[in-house]
Amino acid sequence: MILDREIYFPFPFHKRVYLFIKKFFYILVRFLGRPTWGRPKAGVKLNIEKQDLVLLVDEEGKLRCKTCRSCVEICPTQCLELSSRAEKETPQSFNFKPLDCMYCSLCEEVCPESAIAMISSSNTSGSYDQTWIRDLNYLGFREELNEGKGLSLEELKELRK
């Protein structure tokens, strides 16, 4: 479609005066009267995901992971490390580097026992003094997850609704 012919010519004089006065009131109303956030209305809960890694926990309180190493093989940036005494047991050490991770959540899709998940969290940033390798105690049992007891599958599903 070809656009209107009027658009290529400037406004006539009387309309320019009218628009100048209108812009003055527009500035006043926008910055003094109306809030800067017209939509959406307050109370809408945003469902932010994929900010931090978490190891899920049984009903008894033990980790669900059985060291099958499928998440280590599929990770595109190789930020996970596992080691265990024997197979089909909970791992001895589980290292995760948050500065290397891509937050693609392929490890969550691949895990056959749904032992690993990505949740939202707000304090992931830190200074250079910190250790930037998260170990097993931090991943499974930090303070925010039920005060040190860990997060289970059912609670995760309730959070995501």
Binding site: I48, P98, C101, Y128
Partner: peptide
């Protein structure tokens, strides 16, 4: 360059960015 604060994420959420700047402010 020597770095003071790291903010991980791809891309990081607004809460993480705001938290990182608070850490920087205390420094």
């Amino acid at each position: 360059i020597p770095v003071d604060v790291y903010i991980p994420g791809c891309p990081p959420s607004m809460d993480a960015l705001v938290g990182g700047i608070e850490i920087l402010r205390s420094k």
